[in-house]
C-alpha cells in the first residue's frame, strides 16, 4: 500500500538544541496512529514540521499519490493540500458563531475573490447542520463560540477539521481537560474519522491511547524509539526506561 505521508531523515535544531533528530515516520491513507512520548520528545515540533510552521534543517517530506514535497509549500498551501491540524488548546474564533466557524472551515475555494462573492447554497447549510449534529452542537449553532464550554470548543474544532475534509488529520492532545463522557465521544469521533482518512493523535494519556486501539509510535529526544501496538511498545525495555526510569 502506498503511503500518504512519508517523513524521512528529518532533523531540526533550535539554537543548538536538536528538537528532532533524524526522524522517519510514515502513515497510510486510512489509518489511525497515536504518537506518545515524554515532554520535550518533539511531538509538537513534529506537527509543526508537517504543517509547514517550522522548516526542517534536513530530510524530506513526501505527500500523497504524486509524492509532492511539503517542504516547498507554506502553511496555507499545505492545509489546502489536505493536512488538517488541531491544536492543544482549543482555538476557535470566539467572536463568531458556531455556524460561521464551521462555514469558514468548509472545503471550498479559498481565494479572496471567490470568498468575497461566496454565498452559502442550501447544500452547504445542510452540510453544516450535519457536522453540528455529529459534534453534538446542533442546538448551539447560532451561539458565539466563545460562550461554549471547553469540551464543546474542542469538538467544534474537531468539527471544523472534519469540514475541511482533510486527508490527514493531526490532533494534538484532544482529551486534555475533558470529562470521561466527553473523552468517549472524542474517541468515537476520531475512530470514525480514521475509516476514511489518516489520523495522527498526539497524546500523553495512556488510558486514552488504549481506547483508540491503534498502532503507536513512541518518540524520545526527537526520534522514534519504538513502534507497534500499545501492548508491544509498553513491553519494550527502552520505552520502560524512558517513561519510568527518570
Amino acid at each position: 500500500m502506498s503511503q500518504l505521508l512519508e517523513v524521512s531523515g528529518v532533523s531540526v535544531t533550535f539554537d543548538g538544541f536538536r528538537a528532532i533528530n533524524n526522524l522517519s515516520f510514515s502513515i497510510g491513507s486510512a489509518e489511525l496512529r497515536a504518537i506518545i512520548g515524554p515532554n520535550g520528545a518533539g511531538k509538537t515540533t513534529f506537527m509543526d514540521i508537517v504543517t509547514g510552521k517550522t522548516r526542517p534543517d534536513e530530510g524530506s517530506i513526501r505527500w500523497g499519490d504524486m509524492s509532492q514535497s511539503l517542504l516547498k509549500m507554506n502553511e496555507s498551501q499545505i492545509a489546502r493540500a489536505g493536512v488538517g491540524r488541531k491544536f492543544q488548546r482549543p482555538t476557535v474564533f470566539e467572536d463568531q458563531s458556531v455556524y460561521d466557524n464551521l462555514a469558514m472551515a468548509l472545503k471550498k475555494d479559498r481565494a479572496p475573490w471567490s470568498v468575497l462573492f461566496f454565498r452559502p447554497k442550501p447544500e452547504d447549510r445542510t452540510r453544516i447542520e450535519e457536522l453540528a449534529a455529529e459534534i453534538g452542537l446542533s442546538d448551539q449553532l447560532y451561539r458565539k463560540s466563545g460562550e461554549l464550554s471547553h469540551g464543546q470548543k474542542q469538538w467544534l474544532e474537531i468539527g471544523m477539521l472534519l469540514a475541511q475534509e482533510p486527508r490527514l488529520l493531526l490532533v494534538d492532545e484532544p482529551a486534555a481537560g475533558m470529562t470521561l463522557a466527553e473523552r468517549e465521544h472524542t474517541t468515537d469521533l476520531l475512530k470514525e474519522a480514521a475509516k476514511t482518512r489518516a489520523v495522527v493523535v498526539v497524546e500523553h494519556d495512556m488510558e486514552f491511547v488504549r481506547r483508540l486501539e491503534c498502532k503507536v509510535t513512541v518518540l524520545h529526544e526527537g526520534s522514534v524509539l519504538a513502534e507497534g501496538s500499545l501492548d508491544h511498545v509498553t513491553k519494550n525495555q527502552d520505552v520502560i526506561d524512558v517513561y519510568l526510569g527518570r
Partner: peptide, 15 residues
C-alpha cells in the same frame, strides 16, 4: 478570523 488568530486561519488553508 485573521484579526483574532492569524495562525489558525492559515491552518484552515486561507492565504
Amino acid at each position: 478570523g485573521i484579526r483574532d488568530d492569524e495562525a489558525r486561519v492559515r491552518f484552515l488553508g486561507y492565504s
